[in-house]
Design a protein around this nucleic acid. Structure first.
Lengths: 256, 256
DNA sequence: CGTAAGCTTGACAATACTCAATCTCTGTGG
DNA sequence: CCACAGAGATTGAGTATTGTCAAGCTTACG
């Protein structure tokens, strides 16, 4: 199998087989392959790690009891989130993990517990310690993989920075729209969105905890966005009728 | 003078000479040495990198024109900040860089521009590309250094997560106090604070941009904190009269 | 049908922002 | 030594944004 790396718009994307039991690592491969040209061994390594897939119910913690908070892990399917909870119960979602995402790879076992990870939908993940080992002890054997993971980690940091900016300096209206655009962009890049449409399997409760607003206010904000026809929401789907217009409204920087 | 490295976890750390021209890398060495037991070569490498120190005026961008946004860099003295600016001029400070901090090391040259870095006080820094090289090409020769840098990067991510939580789920009052506590803790660990006191060479303008509030509101919030005697502010100094009490008020988790 | 989860709305309160002064330093030129 | 300028801190008044509480509503599903 040869992986032609696609660009943003997926022209020339290889015909990858649909996600399924046969190739559980596919989203991960797709994600990393666009960051650096993976070697066949790299792909094989990813597949072997993904073979140890685990299933999680909605709301289940991905880290098994006793597992270090930041154990390397790859998301094969479903959506998850890293969550902080304040002593009095307030909850903040720090970032979403979408299919293809890998975390905890640059950090390694760390003394500081960063944040527990929770499945927001039923999900499949795989513990990726072997991958971490490969990137530390046998790093020289996997230069492209190492590079790809490095870039993925940088993207994760960039995502946190974006979120800080949203929470610190944007109104709820801008913030919500900006976040939806980012989500769409991410899914698009992962090959999980078509023109202006993608899945959005999140309750308003969860979205409110991402965006740092109350559910009530989020609901009103979404209503406003719908009224301005910047956003359409059906059951588990999001539609962005005019992405350029939306990007203009909230200062979203396309081309990332 | 002998530097007894303060309490936290500093047992067995090497005795370091005071900060000065002779050992510009000292804050960096101190910072990393507490994360992993650096070898003599590691320290030598850090010193050699630090020898190429550059001076920056307040408000100067640390990244020289044309330099990649996330070029590896170490802060030798002074305070700096990573900054995002929205199209309409609103500004959010993402994180502070204190003496001893290193950034851009795990990422390497990245296609995405994360955020420009600006000096908040007159500062000395050094471009740390050689360090980055050592950690990639000759990583096997510097295991402890690699580990220390890894942990420092994890701490940076943890810091961003803390900030997301502050901005998303805490009131301005809690948020301000929580941030001041974190700042104090960081400085304390770096050996730059005594019991309950540390420098705070930031204008309220800057603090407001860190905390995502208006200057006016920050001012009132600080006033309230002073009124409750949780915080005292003199010229460029911060005093926390009762850290435990303060930590309780804002849910700050000591012991990090 | 009946239930439970999730969504929507109204009414009201608290939090935070903007605008526009005023005040307090600190350093500078005369 | 003093008046003055400029940066930064502080305050008041009015407004906008967002939160809380308490209902209803809708939908999926047993």
């Amino acid at each position: 199998m040869s992986l032609t790396l696609s660009t943003d718009t997926a022209r020339g994307s290889p015909a990858l087989s649909p996600v399924g039991r046969s190739r559980p690592a596919e989203p991960v491969v797709r994600r990393l392959a666009r960051l650096a040209p993976l070697a066949a061994e790299d792909v094989a390594l990813l597949e072997s790690v993904a073979a140890r897939r685990e299933r999680h119910e909605r709301n289940a913690e991905l880290n098994r009891q006793g597992e270090r908070a930041f154990t390397p892990r790859m998301v094969l399917s479903g959506w998850a989130a890293r969550v902080r909870t304040l002593p009095d119960g307030r909850r903040q979602i720090l970032s979403l993990l979408l299919p293809g995402d890998v975390t905890g790879l640059t950090t390694g076992p760390s003394p500081l517990s960063l944040a527990p990870t929770v499945a927001l939908t039923p999900a499949h993940t795989a513990e990726a310690t072997p991958l971490f080992e490969a990137l530390t002890r046998r790093r020289a054997d996997h230069p492209a993989l190492a590079r790809a993971v490095e870039l993925a980690a940088a993207a994760e940091v960039a995502g946190l920075m974006d979120h800080v900016t949203r929470l610190g300096r944007m109104s709820a209206y801008e913030r919500t729209l900006h976040w939806l655009l980012e989500l769409y962009t991410r899914l698009k890049r992962a090959g999980l969105a078509e023109a202006g449409r993608c899945r959005l399997p999140l309750t308003q409760d969860v979205m409110a905890d991402v965006l740092g607003v109350s559910v009530v206010h989020l609901n009103r904000t979404l209503r406003q966005l719908k009224g301005d026809d910047l956003v359409r929401l059906e059951v588990g789907r999001l539609t962005l009728p005019d992405i350029d217009k939306a990007a203009g409204v909230c200062g979203f920087d396309r081309g990332r």
